[in-house]
């Protein structure tokens, strides 16, 4: 089929305009955060220099070293445990014909539709009665539970897509269900596992409401987004510092996104798909 030059030009124009809209605020952060200096050349501001001054100042005054470390710790534990448990549960629900397996699956699926807003208040009081408020386990365990919904849904879908002959061949070779899972199915399913890892990483890193409620009164345990929120309350109109802080908090996820964007997009768009 032929498409006219005009049609193609229209397409690129639309995409370019919306790309600029999407990128503009983020470029603004870089511009402010790096304190770009400009001189006017015939009325057009041309960048002549930049500095890491604002980033260094925000880093120090916002205690971002502590907050990023806290976030990294929380993310690593949540991802490791949630991924391990999701693979195990998804394997059983996807390949083994368990009585009641479907009911269990829908029970996990329910969590995909339960927003944090409906959980956070009872969670806070439950955790407090066990002395787990304002502690890492108190923030980590609920996030593992929330991640298990997507994880189990996602891994079950992968395990169901594996040809039965592959599992059968492993069984013929004398592999038990445990060996079949880790020696055959997980290595073959690496793309699915990677998608799950990056999504749980992003959701956990970006989580705000849970962190606010559970870590609200322990400044030294704040995660990066929570730290940024308090930081912006403190430096209301120092936009270069705020931009630097926002950049620091957003950067880790954006770096991973640039390399693995396919996984992010595929996973986030299919998370909404029900069977």
């Amino acid at each position: 089929m032929t498409t006219s030059r005009a049609e193609r030009a229209f397409n690129y124009t639309v995409l370019a305009i919306f790309s600029v809209i999407a990128a503009f605020p983020l470029l603004g952060v870089v511009w402010l955060g790096l304190r770009v200096r400009t001189t006017d050349v015939m009325g057009i501001p041309v960048p002549t220099g930049a500095s890491f001054g604002a980033i260094a100042e925000a880093w120090q005054r916002g205690h971002f070293a502590t907050y990023l470390t806290n976030s990294a710790f929380v993310v690593v534990v949540v991802v490791l445990v949630a991924v391990l448990l999701s693979i195990l549960a998804g394997y059983a629900l996807g390949t083994m014909d368990l009585p009641g397996g479907n009911a269990l699956f829908y029970l996990f699926l329910l969590g995909l539709m339960v927003p944090t807003e409906a959980l956070v208040i009872p969670l806070f009081f439950d955790l407090r009665s066990f002395g787990l408020d304002n502690s890492f386990p108190g923030l980590i365990l609920p996030q593992i539970a929330q991640s298990l919904s997507f994880g189990t849904f996602w891994m079950r879908a992968y395990f169901r897509s594996v040809p039965g002959s592959l599992i059968e061949a492993a069984r013929m070779d004398g592999a038990g269900s445990w060996t079949t899972l880790w020696r055959v199915l997980v290595p073959v399913g690496r793309p699915a596992v990677v998608t799950m890892i990056v999504l749980i990483f992003m959701w956990t890193w970006n989580e705000f409401l849970l962190a606010l409620v559970i870590m609200g009164s322990r400044e030294d345990l704040r995660t990066a987004p929570l730290g940024l929120s308090f930081f912006q309350g403190q430096f209301v109109s120092d936009y270069d510092l705020l931009a630097a802080g926002a950049g620091i908090v957003a950067l880790p996820v954006m770096v991973v996104y640039v390399f693995l964007q396919r996984h992010f997009i595929a996973g986030m768009l299919s998370g909404a798909l029900k069977e």
Partner: peptide, 18 residues
Amino acid sequence: RTVLFLPQVVAMVAVAVI
């Protein structure tokens, strides 16, 4: 696609600050 989808992966707190 990568650029258009970018706002989805930025922490909402950072989006608010921007």
